[in-house]
Design a protein around this nucleic acid. Sequence first.
RNA 1: UGGGGCGUCGUCUAGUGGUAGGACACAGGAUUUUGGAUCCUGGUGCGGAGGUUCGACUCCUCCCGCCCCAGCCA
Length: 564
Amino acid sequence: MTQNKTAKPTNFIETVIQEDLRTNKYGGRVHTRFPPEPNGYLHIGHAKAISINFGIAEDYKGLCNLRFDDSNPMKEKQEYIDAIRDDIRWLGFDWEDREYYASDYFDQLYEWAVKLIKDGKAYVDDLSADEIREHRGTLTEPGKESPYRKRSVRENLDLFKRMRAGEFPDGFKVLRAKIDMAAPNINMRDPVMYRILHESHYRQSNKWCIYPTYDWTHGQSDSIEGITHSLCSLEFEDHRPLYDWFLEQLGVYHPQQIEFARLNLSFTVMSKRVLKRLVEEGYVSGWDDPRMPTISGLRRRGYTPESIRSFCQRIGVAKADSIIDIALLEHCLREDLNKRAPRVMVVLRPLKVVIDNYPEKQVEELDAINNPEDESMGIRKVPFSRVLYIEQDDFREEPPPKFYRLALGREVRLRYAYFIKCVDVVKDEKGNVVELHCTYDPQTRGGDAPDGRTSKATLHWVSAAHAIKAEVRLYDRLFVKPDPDDVEEGKDFTVNLNPNSLEILKDCYGEPSLKTAKIGDRFQFERLGYFYVDLDSSPDALVFNRTVSLRDTWAKIEKAQKRG
RNA sequence: UGGGGCGUCGUCUAGUGGUAGGACACAGGAUUUUGGAUCCUGGUGCGGAGGUUCGACUCCUCCCGCCCCAGCCA
């Protein structure tokens, strides 16, 4: 992963870093950080930020800190800290002993606030939240100065101390930076630095009843940690002048902030608010529901960390707002899984097949290749006998054009087994096909015909007597529209939820080698897709999640045919 | 109608004055005991208009469009 410092930059951030390295701006150091707020679970969008921050540190032989931006006691919890740590580790990144907390800087921040007050750069304001909003002006009109803006340094100092001492109730006073109420950049119109919150902090307990705002915390935290490049998303671009101002007034070390566009993915949502609603209103089973774009959801779905990292590499880094096609994520997943997942045969929707000319009690152990992409994964034995299951989709009474699979009178190959020919179809009283009778050609054992004839279709199958029953959960995209927020006036994203995003199949049959499948194992079910053994699985009740289907050319043809 | 950003194939992204490249997607074809995988082939797409220049995606001007900001959230 380590690349030469003079290697061609892969994005505009690296261009800046290489230039800083060249000019020795930070003494040759590259030090980044990933600064999540522990108020929720990480999602694939965070994976991009993680990948950028840790990736750049890795590539330039620098360091990347993990810092929890925990300045709001109302929202933050230890539970999220733990989950975030797990997710980052799972992705494969390491912050060693550099785990920091903005809340550990509260004392320093307080001292700095006192310094600003003494310098006449900050003041205690008695205005209510509503009044402050009114005084702020609008996008086109300047704000008005607070009547308390001219308080003396001594009074400000006294008041601020008393704020900290708990003399005032929540919301009664705030500490504000004294900048410019007429600034065209609204962030510079005397932003709030401290608010009174008689609230226990998950790490600081009741030590504080005033808490610094993010704007007053973030830049100084980066400064304290000696961060060289503070990489963040675009919406903080117009906060940068404020961060610069604070650092300048304080006269402390000044990191460089660089903003990039956050990740958007088609057919899913990234907003914490929406994700939270999906969980709380029961549209999904939890933060780790396999349909969620959370790291924990993707993990449970069966995504590999490698595939996510590869995805983050490929999408690049830029400043233009964009929506990445989720097909790219799925491509990265398949690419990785194709190389590593052992193949196995599982029938999802079983259709019974009796091989009429196959001896009643006979069982043969046939050789099957574990992974055609990786010979070292070897072979296994698969039992074949007179009664089998094949996929319902693999038989048609009236085969449409280009349908190569089984139909009455047709011959196909059973993977690693024999050529079989359908000679009879059994239906129930409603006319549903419930059983097929076939004959096999003993000459084709293993799947090759000595006379050179071939089959356009090769079907997966399972021996009924040897099959292992399993539950399979078929997951699909959570939303039916590329942009889930594309809704009529007055409606919300819930109208775009995909009603078929989860289908549970309880009567699936797998080959006996699956007996030893453990939670967390990944397989390719031949011709179907990649599957992951779910947390709910047990040795006698296997549960598989479909991570992603295989590319399905036939489905495309059929869809095109239906379209006309 | 304030400020800050951004506009290159369908979607991302490279290119920073010298024939617009890559990935995904899509469409053909080859191959195949997974309709998988693999391998070929297929695209004039730089928001618009002027200007500078021998030459402009790159520089200048104007215009158009999109995103962000009026939390005591981050």
